[in-house]
Amino acid sequence: MTAVDTAPAQVGGVPSMTVTLRIRRLNPEGVGDHAAGEDYWEEFQVEAHATDRVLDALHKIKWEQDGSLAFRRSCAHGVCGSDAMRINAKNRLACKTLLKDLNPAKPILIEPIAGLPVEKDLIVDMEPFFASYREIMPFLMPSGPAPERERLQSPEERERFDDTTKCILCAACTTACPVFWTDGQYFGPQAIVGAHRFIFDSRDEGQWDRLEILNDKAGVWKCRTAFNCTEACPRGIEVTKAISEVKKVLNTGEI
């Protein structure tokens, strides 16, 4: 028996609707009435299903209405972390946000993530964000010769940093942080999450090097526990908790 597609595609099965997207745009070379580097709102209307994601709506705009709309996306399935943007004033991944969860009756506001320099439309310069991540040395720092087989770890040891291994570096947390917005001095939640992942790893021996870097006025102590990061994280990482665990280690001296 061969499986045959007998039933016609149920396009009408999911209700379709017209949604309005108000997108914060910026063209570095200027376009129409807008000077180079000026940011402005532009509205688009797309026909979409309730189960479509914001990314699908953006694709429709880019492919069918305005090819100049610029945004990043790679895997489009919530794994690569390229398409973090500010949707209805909350940082989310466009590929994980369904239109039906956004009250499509009103225009959906889409802005680039805040606190990083905008290059074009929804694309920001991620370099300051990655620079902070590099500073905390996000790689295993073991001592002694490499073992012949895996570095073993008990489930309990793994459990301590399991949450922070989920980070995909989308920058949703860091660009939701009100302290990060102020002057760019703060490392940002993501860098601390990245450090947490190694500090609490029993196989790593560079904990105190990383803690020394984070024990800075612009390090963990700049965190005001606003919880914006925890709320923004599309992976559900308890970011503020991770930051507090690093603070606790610095206060008690015990990992």
């Binding site: 070379e29 580097g37 310069d125 760019g184 800075d216 006025k217 102590w221």
Partner: peptide, 23 residues
Amino acid sequence: MTAPELSQPMPRTRKRMNATYRW
């Protein structure tokens, strides 16, 4: 036509936590 210069982020000033601040 050239693209406008992106504003550079402020360089991080290394200020270690001191005892007073921690207190």
